[in-house]
Design a binder for these strands. Structure first.
Lengths: 198, 198
DNA sequence: CGTCTATTTGAATGTACTCAAAAGCGGTGG
DNA sequence: CCACCGCTTTTGAGTACATTCAAATAGACG
């Protein structure tokens, strides 16, 4: 049984995107299970097929890829009330490129892929929920491309702080450097420079 | 009345993502209208609210933004059988940041936003079509972020040629430079270098 | 307390940019 | 059909932002 507080968190998230009759909402919540993780725990490995999505309640989780020089790139950071998964692998049923790792001990709700797909037929309004989620994820990813092209590293970092307040003090900074697209060394020098000029 | 060939093109596109009864497919096609455009014609201006999506049949259309230094960034290039719109503006009903411009005289099918939203209630399977489109758009946008972070400009250009075969000979190269994230000057030098080394 | 990882620092390097100017190209009108 | 005009592409020189590599320092965790 899922803690009522966590139930409410997920229901509130859904409610922000779509209106649901109580029956459907109950059914949706009945499909997820709760899971506690430790720091550094891996939820999905590169080359595995993603079978689940995770709704983050507490903690922080990253999804990263390796490029052909074996360098890591942090593609997603998820904290309170965000979904995280390897969408490519989830929709294609092929081995993915993402490793999903907990950066802190975390609490998540787990949605099995198969149940998610079943619900689309049973309750079409839930398909709308995920459509709208996808639309928003798509738009914010486009914004990230635009920012990478048009903003300086300092500006991207300021954006990051607005989007993830306080996260810089919770997780290794090299992951933040990777997320905004710079090396850890440059990130370190940049932060120092920003402090001096403020 | 839409040319049967164009009708088929749209139906085939839908068919790649979702199975539809003939009735629903007919209804869907009845919602779009055909439009011929000239080169340099603007379909949507920055700061206007997007009311339509465009399915490109012939020609080439770009969507670009301006950053705070008034530099253009080509966010989308659409050719045969791609949808293009300002998704942010379309879903939020707020003025957008994209200008959508035809780079060649083009043939498009126009889907009014309002009719698209209506159809979600009438035929839930169409909501699935757009959900799946969004999932794919999202995944390929993530891939673009990854490529921008991990590939050299040359590799990004080779990817571009694979994704848009022959387009380099059809449109001003400065747009391609912008799409892959380099200046026109650098793009020119890079192409020269690649020719020499091959 | 010791070990492992993360961060900082510095020097040298490189990739891509800016600015300016010349050359090329294409469309339009005379 | 040619000549012109405007836009695009090319070229070159100088520059900047960010990287790489190496090493020292700091911090976290068992």
């Amino acid at each position: 049984m899922i803690k009522p507080e966590y139930r409410e968190r997920l229901l509130a998230h859904i409610g922000r995107y779509v209106q649901l009759p109580a029956e459907e909402a109950e059914y949706f919540v009945s499909l997820v299970s709760h899971r506690s993780t430790t720091a550094r725990e891996i939820l999905l490995r590169q080359c595995d097929i993603a079978n689940e999505s995770y709704f983050v309640l507490e903690g922080c989780i990253r999804a990263y890829t390796l490029d052909n020089k074996a360098d890591e790139h942090v593609m997603h950071l998820a904290t309170n009330d965000w979904w995280i998964t390897d969408m490519y692998s989830l929709i294609t049923r092929k081995p993915g490129n993402y490793t999903i790792e907990c950066l802190e001990a975390s609490e998540v709700l787990v949605m099995p892929r198969e149940k998610q797909w079943d619900i689309y037929d049973k309750y079409p309004r839930m398909e709308r929920y995920f459509r709208v989620l996808m639309e928003n994820a798509y738009v914010s990813t486009l914004q990230r491309i635009h920012d990478n092209l048009s903003l300086s590293a300092e500006e991207r970092y300021l954006n990051f702080e607005r989007k993830f307040p306080g996260l810089v003090h919770r997780i290794p900074n090299k992951h933040i450097a990777s997320y905004i697209g710079v090396t850890p060394e440059f990130f370190s020098k940049m932060k120092k420079r920003m402090l001096k000029n403020s």
